[in-house]
């Protein structure tokens, strides 16, 4: 088990190395350090000297991969690639192009993201599975058909409309929750109601349908029919057998997502003014702050890799039959 995990972790590191090289190539091809300097220095009265100074201060004046002027190890370490990319592995994100410490910003901004994402995730999971079980219970009835059509209808609506509509109806028409904003501590609760609600609602269609199809597939298996033939009640069959056996496909889809909850929801956060990592990323894209975008890409990949490893672990927990050599 532990040697298997070790192998997975090493593989994860390899993946991260690939991500690192790829993003570095992508970002330095998109925008030269000169572009970055000019974007950050503003438009008024910018001189070439100021650009040079900026680059020097941020360490963008170094050569990209190999520093010919240095000797020994510094030939490699005194480069943009090493200082801006390799050091990400130590979670040293450095300073944003604006000068703020990225690591600090990430550590403060991930909590609001989590405060929205985690409840939305948990409530969502409960709601979706409940609905899906209901549909599976009444499968092939008018209730089921109607439910599936309703799900398809819901998943055909763009997520933008959920947000715009939700804000308009709940915040403006009915004055039930603040339209946007955030606060620390318990005060945060009233700001979370709306984004969580919208987050759950926008997922109902797709997720319910997905879980339903998993349950239906499970129900049609032989052991379920055997259990039913033995006279075990439908509900017991559903909860004891179907739900448990459906855990593997559910976990495969769900566990990977859990670490990514930290990354926040891009659009929800900027619409609701939640100071999380999602809005951080959007801002970075809009301001072309590539230091932040690079850091977020790396962070996202790390969380994904963690999610993959967690998925492996969760299999063994759910199903003792699964063993890893």
């Amino acid at each position: 088990m532990s040697s298997y995990l070790l192998r997975r972790v090493l593989y994860g590191l390899l993946v991260l190395a690939g991500v690192n090289v790829l993003t570095f190539a992508l970002f330095f091809f998109v925008n030269s350090p000169d572009d970055m300097a000019r974007a950050q220095l503003g438009a008024k009265r910018v001189t070439p000297e100021a650009v040079e100074k900026w680059k020097q201060q941020r360490g963008y004046d170094k050569p990209l991969f190999l520093n010919e002027k240095m000797s020994g190890i510094e030939r490699v370490t005194e480069t943009v690639f090493y200082t801006k990319s390799v050091r990400l592995f130590a979670f040293d994100f450095g300073a944003s192009d604006q000068g703020r410490n990225i690591g600090y910003d990430i550590s403060t901004r991930m909590w609001p993201s989590l405060a929205v994402q985690l409840p939305a995730f948990v409530i969502g999971l409960l709601v979706y599975i409940t609905f899906a079980l209901l549909l599976a219970l009444f499968r092939a009835s008018a209730f089921d058909v109607g439910g599936v059509v309703f799900c398809v209808l819901l998943m055909s609506i763009s997520s933008l409309f959920y947000i715009i509509g939700g804000q308009y109806v709940f915040g403006k028409l009915w004055s039930l929750a603040p339209i946007s904003g955030y606060d620390g501590g318990f005060e945060a609760l009233k700001f979370l109601v709306l984004p969580v609600l919208i987050g759950v609602a926008s997922g109902i269609g797709g997720s319910t349908r997905w879980y339903r199809s998993i349950f239906i597939e499970e129900i049609s298996k032989d052991y379920v029919r055997t259990a039913r033939a033995k006279g075990i009640g439908e509900l017991r069959v559903l909860f004891r057998h179907v739900l448990q056996n459906a855990m593997i496909p559910i976990l495969t889809g769900v566990v990977v997502v859990i670490p990514l909850l930290f990354m926040g929801a891009l659009i929800t956060e900027s619409f609701f003014g939640i100071p999380g990592l999602g809005s951080y990323t959007i801002d970075a894209i809009n301001q072309q702050d590539f230091a932040i975008v690079r850091a977020m890409v790396f962070l996202g990949s790390v969380l994904y890799v963690i999610g993959l490893i967690l998925t492996d672990i969760s299999y063994t927990l759910v199903d003792p039959r699964v063993r890893f050599s």
Binding site: V15, L26, F27, V30, T281, I285, V293
Partner: peptide, 17 residues
Amino acid sequence: TLSSIPGVLLIAAAVLM
């Protein structure tokens, strides 16, 4: 590797390029 990069960020970078 490709799927571990958050999609929006990859798209953003590529579109800017």
